Amino acid sequence: AKGFAIIVGQAERDPELAVSVGVRVDLPSELRRQLLRSATDAVRTRLLSRAPPHLFEEIQSAIAAVAIGAEREMSAVRDFEGAKRAIAGLKATGQLNEATLLGFARQRRYEETVAALAALSGSTVEVIRPLMQSLREDGLLVPCRAAQLGWETAMAVLECRFATGAMTPADIARTQGHFARMTAENAKRTLRFWQVRAS
């Protein structure tokens, strides 16, 4: 199983390998679920199309479980009050900055990341939260740009949305290009508009 764990780790970055490993009969179920958690929709679809009949149901139910888990994770009822207080405290003592946000995002401290991004972008948790719950990246780039964050921090914030798994290299490249083209002025304007709409 240790050999499989290594292959699954490599397959998370290689769609071709993911498909060929995912349909193997001797792959332990837990590792198949792990592979599916980080797989893109395209890889999941190909796995289903190539699955032998006796594995089809197992793969299908694993994909369903992963999807439910991701939705539950992203729409979980979260308590932002504590995070808001903590961030307000950091702001009051001049300790709230991009490095602080980067730390929260890297540790996947979801509530603190949302509250810190809201404070740094001059927005509110109510505006940032739905952007964090969306599977699309572009909305979340707006407050990141408005807060004048660097790409590394913006990327960490994007990744913080997921409990497990990560964006594909193609997604990252596309998103980085989008981020580079966005101006802070436009981002602030958009954010103000969303702010008015939310209130």
Results as ranks from 00 to 15, higher is better:
149 L>G: 02
153 T>Q: 02
43 V>W: 02
138 D>R: 01
151 W>F: 02
56 F>C: 06
174 R>G: 13
176 Q>W: 03
181 R>A: 15
196 V>A: 13
176 Q>E: 15
149 L>W: 01
131 L>M: 14
9 G>N: 12
10 Q>K: 13
176 Q>S: 07
151 W>C: 01
76 A>I: 09
79 D>R: 07
78 R>V: 13
91 K>V: 05
23 V>A: 09
161 R>P: 07
34 Q>Y: 05
166 A>I: 08
64 A>P: 03
189 R>Y: 11
52 P>T: 07
58 E>G: 07
17 L>I: 04
157 V>I: 13
128 I>K: 01
12 E>M: 14
4 F>V: 02
14 D>R: 10
141 L>H: 01
193 F>P: 00
135 L>A: 06
54 H>L: 12
151 W>V: 00
127 V>N: 08
60 Q>G: 08
110 Y>P: 07
158 L>E: 00
146 A>M: 04
172 I>Y: 05
14 D>E: 15
189 R>C: 06
115 A>W: 03
164 T>D: 11
31 L>W: 07
29 S>R: 10
26 D>C: 05
148 Q>I: 03
11 A>M: 08
10 Q>G: 03
123 S>P: 11
126 E>Q: 15
89 G>Y: 06
35 L>T: 05
65 A>Y: 02
52 P>A: 07
101 L>H: 04
97 N>Q: 06
83 A>Q: 10
186 N>W: 09
56 F>V: 10
70 A>M: 12
42 A>I: 07
66 V>K: 00
25 V>H: 11
172 I>E: 12
18 A>W: 04
150 G>A: 03
12 E>I: 08
187 A>W: 04
178 H>I: 06
75 S>V: 11
37 R>G: 09
187 A>Y: 04
174 R>D: 15
193 F>H: 08
124 T>V: 14
87 I>P: 09
98 E>S: 10
130 P>H: 06
8 V>L: 05
59 I>T: 05
123 S>C: 11
113 T>A: 11
50 R>H: 15
15 P>I: 09
76 A>S: 14
55 L>E: 12
4 F>M: 14
131 L>T: 00
195 Q>Y: 04
181 R>V: 01
4 F>K: 03
143 P>N: 03
65 A>K: 06
192 R>A: 15
90 L>Q: 13
179 F>G: 00
168 T>G: 13
199 S>M: 12
89 G>V: 05
23 V>G: 09
141 L>C: 01
72 R>K: 11
77 V>G: 10
88 A>E: 15
27 L>R: 06
44 R>M: 07
94 G>K: 04
100 T>P: 08
172 I>L: 15
82 G>V: 14
159 E>Q: 12
172 I>D: 05
63 I>T: 03
107 Q>R: 14
98 E>W: 00
63 I>K: 02
86 A>T: 13
103 G>Y: 02
132 M>Y: 10
72 R>F: 03
188 K>M: 12
193 F>W: 07
84 K>H: 03
40 T>M: 03
152 E>N: 08
61 S>R: 09
24 R>H: 09
20 S>C: 02
61 S>Y: 05
78 R>S: 13
174 R>Q: 15
121 S>P: 08
183 T>F: 07
8 V>R: 03
134 S>K: 04
28 P>H: 02
197 R>N: 11
155 M>P: 01
178 H>A: 12
64 A>V: 15
103 G>Q: 06
